[in-house]
């Protein structure tokens, strides 16, 4: 056997081959990347506004029965009505009517009674009732609810719209 022939044999058979096929791994990584990109785009900007609804209609009556000396607090009513394709907000308790939800938040924040605002009217747990008219778009209802919570109030109920 010639020298060249032996070298050829070593080159083809005798030498160990260290090979790693990474193509399937790249395939899988791309699939995962595409999946997460798509799903992240769908759900990233979804947020939750927590609303703890009153457990039942007679909750305030039961609370009054448990504590007969408790003073019934008149809720601050925020009415939303629809005129000329525009939602308008009005407030009870002599507060001025805001132009939009942003101004509603400013007014309610100014009326908040806490250690920093001793001149405020309502404590954080003062009952607030959001009363939208049936034809008000859900977007405006949610904007008003968001303004109330962002202003610092914690007890918000829905209902009693015009």
């Amino acid at each position: 056997m010639s020298r060249e022939h032996r070298a050829l044999l070593r080159g083809t058979h005798a030498r160990a081959r260290l090979g790693l096929t990474i193509t399937p791994m790249i395939d899988v990584v791309f699939q995962l990347l595409i999946y997460f990109l798509l799903t992240a785009g769908l759900i990233a900007n979804e947020r939750h506004l927590r609303a703890e609804l009153p457990p039942s209609d007679d909750a305030s009556a039961r609370a009054a029965a448990e504590d007969p000396f408790a003073l019934e607090r008149e809720p601050l009513v925020i009415r939303l009505t629809r005129t000329n394709d525009r939602s308008t907000i009005s407030l009870s308790s002599g507060l001025r009517s805001p132009r939009d939800a942003v101004e509603l938040e400013v007014i309610l924040r100014g009326a908040l009674l806490d250690t920093n605002r001793p001149q405020g009217l309502f404590p954080v747990d003062h009952p607030i009732r959001l009363a939208p008219a049936p034809d008000v778009p859900w977007n405006d209802v949610v904007a008003a609810f968001n303004a109330v919570i962002a202003a610092g109030y914690r007890t918000v109920a829905f209902g009693g719209g015009a």
Binding site: N45, E46, R47, H48, L49, R50, A51, E52, L53, P54, P55, S56, V142, F145, N146, F158
Partner: peptide, 26 residues
């Protein structure tokens, strides 16, 4: 839908509270 949630919690009893998350887009 909100009323259905309140009613459901009341009917179910067992101290269930109608916890509602209004889903919004920020």
């Amino acid at each position: 839908a909100m009323r259905a949630t309140t009613t459901a919690a009341k009917v179910a009893g067992g101290g269930a509270l109608p916890r509602l998350n209004l889903v919004v887009e920020e």
